[in-house]
Computed example of a mutant assay.
Amino acid sequence: MSKWMSKKTGSIFMISTMTVMLAACGSEESSGSSEGEGSKYPEDSIEVVVPAGAGGDTDRNTRTLANYMEEELGVSLVIQNVEGSGGSTGTSEVLDSDPDGYRVVAYHDAMLLNNILGLTDYSYSDFELAGISILDQSNTFMVSAEAEYDNAEEMIEYAKKNPGDVNVATETGAFTHLQLLAIQQETGAEFNIVDAGGASDKITALLGGQVDVVPTSLGLVEEYVESGEMKSLGILAEERLEQFPDVPTFQEQGIDVTFDKTFMWAFPPETPEEVVNTFSEAMETVVTDNEEFREEISSYAVQPEYMNPDEAEKLLDETNEYYTELNESTE
């Protein structure tokens, strides 16, 4: 510095040169910043991991919503079915993914149950929630048309008289697993609980006579009801469904057990808030305002129901507490 001060002319030249250089750098940084702010997420296709097999209600609901969200986001949403371990194989893949917004998981309450039942050491709170999109109150128990019981009350009565004789399909650690534990606890019935895989696998098992009862979404098996191949024993809701007014609730039949299934979307931890918000806002637009989507999804006997990340977290906190208490009471 002292050398520069002793050579005034050189000093002025150097300072002027540095000033020009700094100004140029500042201009470049400003330009880069503007470009960063102007760049729009998403700029590439988004992989949607469905932790369930193709053909089930999770897969169907996700593909339906993704189809409409592509119009809002302007990119493709590519569905990847990743089965295994009650859904935990798929959720763990997303949990460990780069938090860049280009991989998201679409799942439901089973993520909570995976943790409660000991399949995972993480839960919904470890992800960046994008929100809830669908509410399913059509959870039902299906049997073949030839079954000797026509409703849940008769099925429970038979199961109590014949402990372990009623083979009920589920997937260990999944949503229907806790339903069965809760109903056994409530009624004193004893089922033979069979791990038959995902939704489509359980339906195949029932059609093939490998199991007697399949807990599933009523909207998913509507065609089998209409064809006379299956019948519903009731739904695990507080009220009958408008779409199936003749199907009674379990509560009506003296079985005080209800379950709603909420379908959520979540990103890996540390995904930028602006990315999550962009995705969530697109979801809100479709679920709330797109009448074509609302009509299509409602035809599956589920409800289009948007909740933003904060609302979703609150509901899942309450649900997690309920499931935890319920599981503890069945142990």
Rank of each mutant, 00 (worst) to 15 (best):
G10S: 05
G10Y: 03
G10C: 00
G10A: 06
S11M: 11
S11Q: 03
S11E: 03
I12M: 04
I12R: 05
I12D: 00
F13K: 11
M14D: 02
M14S: 10
M14T: 12
M14I: 11
S16D: 05
S16Q: 07
S16M: 14
S16I: 14
S16Y: 12
T17L: 14
T17W: 13
M18R: 04
M18G: 11
M18N: 10
M18E: 04
T19H: 05
T19K: 10
T19W: 04
T19L: 15
T19M: 15
V20K: 11
V20L: 15
M21R: 03
M21H: 07
M21I: 15
M21D: 01
M21A: 14
M21P: 01
L22P: 11
L22D: 07
L22H: 11
L22K: 06
L22V: 15
A23V: 14
A23L: 15
A23P: 10
A24Q: 10
A24L: 15
A24V: 15
A24R: 07
A24N: 11
C25E: 10
C25Y: 12
C25P: 01
C25H: 08
C25Q: 08
G26P: 10
G26I: 08
G26Q: 06
G26V: 07
G26Y: 10
G26E: 06
E28F: 12
E28G: 03
E28N: 10
E28D: 08
E29S: 12
E29V: 14
E29T: 13
S30Q: 09
S30H: 09
S30L: 12
S31P: 00
S31T: 12
G32P: 00
G32Y: 10
G32K: 06
G32C: 02
G32F: 09
S33F: 07
S33D: 05
S33E: 08
S33V: 02
S34T: 09
S34V: 06
S34R: 10
S34D: 05
E35F: 07
E35I: 09
E35S: 12
G36M: 08
G36L: 07
G36N: 08
E37A: 13
E37I: 02
E37D: 12
E37L: 06
E37P: 03
E37K: 12
G38E: 08
G38H: 04
S39R: 09
S39T: 06
S39M: 04
S39H: 05
K40C: 01
K40D: 03
K40H: 07
K40Q: 09
Y41P: 04
Y41E: 01
Y41L: 01
Y41A: 00
P42Y: 02
P42L: 01
P42A: 01
P42H: 02
E43L: 00
E43G: 09
E43S: 14
E43H: 05
D44S: 08
D44Y: 05
D44M: 03
D44Q: 09
D44V: 02
S45F: 03
S45C: 00
I46G: 00
E47A: 08
E47C: 03
E47N: 11
E47V: 06
